[in-house]
């Protein structure tokens, strides 16, 4: 079932000035309920613009955005309700922290929802656990944390609002591999547990292969391809044409295949390839 559907959406920055720029051009795509969808595309292809439309921060110049089949701009006065249902973590969210302690910063969103102190406390602690931060940090100033910790605090701030749809714009950009795994792993575990729809913006084909169900590929302000991970990976030449590389591990597997080691099945993650190799060895042993 579709959670969010976008129909013929165009978005123009600085409309009516010489700096006018069409960042989205007739984009249509949909995001399935309870699934993890990866939004992928090269720099400047319009990914961030698209996610800012999903929770009504921007209003489409043309076209419609539907949440559960309802046009989110049907009643512009109620757009804050949409923002509560669709939680958006923007690119580089660590620059938005402002409060004195990590605790009160994470509590900012729930407070705006009008929750009572007990509920807020519950949600803050739950959120911080999901992003893998220690409770000892709660009383610290957010400005004393490392970049990766700040990022997690910012993500926790949205999780604590318990949105139905979680949208993250490059949550793992600029983090080391372990940090990436922890953040993305924690997030995917959280959304699968709760049946939340997750939309993940990424540059990385590896992330997409390891964490996502569906993929939307963007190119030059348009949707270039859309489907399940397997469907999209079955068009390596087209992916190459948009400047998206197949994962390193897939290249390795292809190298092995060319060397005569016949691997089968999906070969997009290290685990895939490990299993394929084990199958191959097992098959040869019999």
């Amino acid at each position: 079932m579709e959670k969010i559907r976008i129909e013929g959406v165009s978005f123009i920055y600085s409309k009516g000035t010489p700096f006018e720029r069409r960042a989205l051009d007739g984009v249509s795509c949909s995001f399935e309920a309870g699934k993890i969808t990866c939004l992928i595309g090269h720099t400047g292809s319009g990914k961030s613009t698209l996610v800012n439309l999903l929770n009504g921060l921007y209003r489409p110049t043309e076209g419609k955005v539907y949440l559960d089949g309802e046009d989110i701009w049907a009643r512009p006065k109620k757009i804050t309700d949409i923002r509560r249902r669709v939680g958006l973590v923007m690119q580089y969210p660590e620059y938005q922290l402002f409060d004195e302690t990590v605790y009160s910063d994470i509590a900012f969103g729930p407070k705006n929802l009008g929750l009572d102190a007990g509920e807020i406390d519950l949600r803050v602690r739950e959120a911080i656990a999901f992003v893998g931060l220690d409770e000892a940090l709660l009383s610290k100033s957010p400005f004393e944390l490392s970049g990766g910790q700040k990022r997690r605090v910012a993500i926790a701030g949205i999780i604590a609002m318990r949105p139905e749809v979680l949208v993250l714009d490059e949550p793992a950009a600029g983090l080391d591999p372990r940090g990436r795994r922890e953040i993305l792993g924690g997030l995917t575990r959280y959304v699968r547990e709760r049946g939340i729809t997750l939309i993940l913006v990424s540059h990385s084909m590896e992330d997409m292969a390891s964490y996502c169900d569906n993929v939307v590929v963007m190119k030059d302000a348009k949707v270039f391809m859309q489907g399940t991970v397997d469907e999209v990976f079955s068009h390596p030449d087209e992916l190459d044409a948009v400047g998206l590389d197949t994962p390193e591990i897939t290249k390795l597997a292809q190298g092995l295949i060319q060397a005569g080691i016949v691997l089968s099945g999906a070969l997009y993650t290290v685990e895939d390839v490990r299993d394929a190799i084990l199958r191959y060895i097992g098959g040869n042993a019999q």
Partner: peptide
């Protein structure tokens, strides 16, 4: 630009 980004971020957290 930055003001706008930060405003959007806080709006996403329910600020009004």
């Amino acid at each position: 630009e930055e003001t706008e980004t930060i405003m959007n971020a806080q709006k996403s957290r329910g600020a009004n």
